[in-house]
Amino acid sequence: MSDDTKKLAIIATKGSLDWAYPPFILASTAAALGYEVQIFFTFYGLQLLRKKLALEVTPLGNPGMPMPMNMDKWFPTFLLAAPGMQSMMTSMMKKKMKEKGVASLEELRDLCLEADVKFVACQMTVDLFDMERSEFIEDVEYAGAAAFFEFAGDSDICLYV
């Protein structure tokens, strides 16, 4: 890479279906525009590196999430904690995304890898949650905060998601 290549550094900290989109969308698009991109996955963001993604979305604690039949306006909040609610919301969200031609996370993640976006997993969080490297896809490097700053310090854009 030449020195005038623009660089994008992203920290991905969220592990829900909805919050998995921004890092992968921005990373793949930046790569298509010629950026060199690195994503540092830490805490719940590590869920985005699992071989099989099983991310869900929840309306709990998120009054801004639009729901079918305007449920966000009248449905009692405490009932959102009912068993099965989260998986129901997740499958409805996935269906909607498919209908609207929104890419799946698997597809976006693959596009990132194809475009040489570098994935770095936070080794400390991997240890903290007793995770195994074998649970994650192979194209991942393991490092810490100092390694992140080596790339981020030179970046043109740095985002915390």
């Binding site: 793949s28 698009t29 596009l111």
Partner: peptide, 8 residues
Amino acid sequence: LNCPLPIL
């Protein structure tokens, strides 16, 4: 297709 797929 929706953003960012057309660009990609």
